[in-house]
Amino acid sequence: MTEQQPPKIEFPCQDYPIKVLGDAGDGLYQCVLEVMERHAPGFDEAAITVKDSRNGRYQSVTVWIVATGEPQLRSIHQDLTASGLVKMVI
């Protein structure tokens, strides 16, 4: 039996979604904006969605960027998780 490989992404990839989960509050949204401006300038800020968890303790922030390659995606992930505000990046 062969191991199934994940699909390869062709770069640049338009409308690549990045979902960030963390504690609810203005700090999370601001952190996501700063990281995206640094690594994916020109993303559509108007397309960002923010959803609160059922109890309001957590939020998800979804941003769509033009992904230029794996190094960019790794840098975004590292900066977001290093902030201390982010629980998970999908």
Rank of each mutant, 00 (worst) to 15 (best):
residue 16 Y to L: 15
residue 67 A to K: 02
residue 67 A to G: 10
residue 3 E to D: 11
residue 7 P to V: 15
residue 86 V to I: 10
residue 61 V to P: 09
residue 34 E to D: 08
residue 68 T to Q: 15
residue 11 F to M: 08
residue 65 I to A: 10
residue 7 P to C: 00
residue 72 Q to Y: 12
residue 26 D to F: 05
residue 70 E to C: 06
residue 9 I to Y: 05
residue 47 A to C: 08
residue 65 I to C: 04
residue 30 Q to I: 01
residue 47 A to T: 09
residue 24 A to V: 06
residue 25 G to C: 06
residue 26 D to E: 13
residue 47 A to F: 00
residue 53 S to G: 14
residue 27 G to V: 01
residue 58 Y to E: 02
residue 63 V to I: 10
residue 77 H to I: 06
residue 30 Q to L: 14
residue 81 T to V: 15
residue 66 V to F: 04
residue 62 T to Y: 01
residue 84 G to T: 00
residue 37 E to P: 05
residue 44 D to L: 14
residue 9 I to E: 01
residue 46 A to T: 15
residue 60 S to V: 06
residue 4 Q to L: 11
residue 32 V to E: 00
residue 90 I to K: 12
residue 70 E to L: 13
residue 1 M to I: 08
residue 11 F to S: 00
residue 22 G to L: 13
residue 59 Q to A: 05
residue 60 S to Y: 09
residue 78 Q to M: 03
residue 17 P to S: 12
residue 85 L to G: 02
residue 49 T to H: 13
residue 36 M to N: 05
residue 84 G to P: 06
residue 74 R to V: 09
residue 6 P to V: 04
residue 86 V to D: 02
residue 45 E to Y: 00
residue 14 Q to F: 04
residue 25 G to D: 07
residue 90 I to Y: 08
residue 85 L to F: 08
residue 3 E to W: 04
residue 27 G to S: 10
residue 84 G to H: 02
residue 83 S to Q: 08
residue 21 L to Y: 13
residue 41 P to F: 11
residue 73 L to V: 03
residue 47 A to Q: 10
residue 25 G to T: 02
residue 38 R to H: 09
residue 75 S to V: 00
residue 20 V to R: 04
residue 50 V to L: 11
residue 10 E to S: 12
residue 88 M to H: 07
residue 23 D to W: 11
residue 57 R to H: 15
residue 63 V to G: 02
residue 7 P to I: 05
residue 74 R to G: 03
residue 86 V to S: 00
residue 53 S to A: 12
residue 49 T to W: 09
residue 43 F to V: 09
residue 12 P to V: 07
residue 70 E to R: 14
residue 47 A to P: 06
residue 68 T to G: 15
residue 23 D to T: 04
residue 4 Q to K: 15
residue 23 D to E: 12
residue 12 P to W: 02
residue 57 R to A: 13
residue 21 L to P: 00
residue 69 G to N: 09
residue 17 P to C: 06
residue 39 H to R: 08
residue 56 G to K: 03
residue 45 E to H: 03
residue 53 S to Q: 11
residue 68 T to V: 09
residue 44 D to V: 04
residue 36 M to G: 10
residue 53 S to H: 02
residue 90 I to D: 09
residue 11 F to L: 01
residue 68 T to Y: 12
residue 14 Q to A: 12
residue 41 P to A: 15
residue 73 L to G: 01
residue 48 I to H: 01
residue 79 D to V: 00
residue 48 I to R: 05
residue 81 T to E: 10
residue 8 K to M: 06
residue 23 D to K: 11
residue 9 I to N: 03
residue 46 A to L: 11
residue 85 L to M: 11
residue 88 M to I: 05
residue 17 P to M: 11
residue 20 V to C: 10
residue 11 F to A: 01
residue 74 R to M: 13
residue 16 Y to H: 13
residue 47 A to S: 15
residue 21 L to C: 01
residue 45 E to Q: 14
residue 69 G to R: 10
residue 18 I to D: 08
residue 33 L to S: 07
residue 90 I to S: 12
residue 60 S to Q: 11
residue 2 T to W: 00
residue 47 A to L: 11
residue 55 N to K: 10
residue 63 V to F: 10
residue 68 T to M: 14
residue 65 I to H: 09
residue 7 P to Y: 06
residue 19 K to R: 15
residue 71 P to I: 06
residue 49 T to S: 14
residue 69 G to L: 14
residue 24 A to S: 07
residue 1 M to C: 02
residue 75 S to Q: 11
residue 20 V to M: 11
residue 71 P to D: 10
residue 41 P to T: 13
residue 31 C to D: 01
residue 83 S to H: 13
residue 84 G to C: 03
residue 83 S to W: 05
residue 66 V to C: 13
